[in-house]
Amino acid sequence: MKTPILRNVIQWLLGIATLLACECIGSLITDVLALPIPGSVVGMLLLLVGLMIYGGVPRGLAKVSSQLLFLLPLLFLPAATGVFFLRNLTLSDWFALLAAITVGTLISITLCALLLRRLLRKTGAAHDR
């Protein structure tokens, strides 16, 4: 009874430690090389390469990650709430913003979908030959 719980806790802690270690190494790399890229993104790419070499996802890491990603909206809640307190934007700024997001997203969705359909058809034709 006691051992499985203990093992779960250890797996979970190892998962957390992996994430934190990747973030630290990533930040270190961007600092040392003075890269304009966020350190956490470098950490994510490091972990991705590591997992591809390892050939799977350790159970603890998978568990911690899915929990963290479920909580994601909570993590950026403070930042998102700030949008209601923005006072330095003019009315025309707001209008431009809303129009750009709505119209821009619709155009970009359409173009991406048409591009991917065309490319998939091309490879589909290549397979038929």
Binding site: S40, M44, L47, L48, S65, L69, L72, L75
Partner: peptide, 10 residues
């Protein structure tokens, strides 16, 4: 948020 970005690798 930092560890969460790293977790996106999974």
């Amino acid at each position: 948020l930092g560890p969460a970005v790293v977790a996106l690798a999974i």
